[in-house]
Amino acid sequence: MPVHAFIDESVRDSRYYLCVAVLDPACLAETRKRLTALLLPGQRELHFKKEKPPRRRLLADRIGGLSAATSVYVTARTRKTEEQDRQRCLFEAVRDLVSVRAHRVVIDSREEQDRHDQTTIYRALGGRPSDTGVSYEHLDSAAAPLLWIPDAVAWCYGAGSDWRRRVMPVVHQVIEL
Rank of each mutant, 00 (worst) to 15 (best):
L59Y: 05
L28A: 01
E9L: 14
A144D: 03
H116R: 09
G126D: 07
A29Y: 10
R101D: 14
L177Y: 14
S99F: 05
L146N: 01
A76S: 08
F6Y: 14
H172V: 06
D8C: 15
V134R: 09
T120Y: 13
V100E: 07
R15D: 11
R104K: 13
D114V: 03
Y136N: 00
D108K: 06
A76L: 13
L40H: 15
A26I: 05
R88T: 08
L139P: 00
L46W: 14
C19D: 04
V98C: 12
C27T: 05
K33C: 04
A154H: 08
L58G: 12
L35G: 00
W155V: 00
Y17G: 08
E112T: 03
L23D: 06
R123T: 02
E92I: 02
R79V: 06
Q43K: 15
R95A: 12
R88E: 14
P2F: 09
E83T: 05
T119G: 10
I149T: 05
C156W: 10
R62Y: 08
S14D: 08
D162R: 03
A142Y: 12
K33R: 11
G126P: 01
L146Y: 00
Q87Y: 13
L28K: 01
A60L: 12
R101H: 15
G158K: 15
E137M: 05
R77M: 10
H4P: 00
A69Y: 06
K49D: 13
R44P: 12
K50I: 02
S10F: 14
T81P: 09
Y73G: 07
M1Q: 07
S141H: 15
T75G: 13
E82Q: 08
T78N: 12
M1A: 10
P53M: 04
R166K: 00
L147V: 15
E176I: 05
L139M: 14
V170L: 01
R164Q: 04
R110P: 03
R86T: 04
D117I: 08
H138A: 05
A152T: 15
V167C: 04
V153Y: 11
M168V: 05
H116F: 15
G158Y: 14
A37Q: 14
L39A: 12
V94Y: 10
L147Q: 10
L18D: 02
E82D: 14
R166C: 08
I7D: 09
R79L: 14
R12D: 05
S141E: 11
A152F: 13
Y73F: 11
Y122H: 07
T78P: 04
C89V: 04
L28H: 02
L146R: 00
L146P: 02
S67Y: 03
T132A: 12
T31H: 06
R95C: 14
W155I: 00
R55W: 01
F6T: 02
L125Q: 04
Q87F: 06
A76N: 14
Q113G: 08
S71T: 09
R44C: 07
R110C: 03
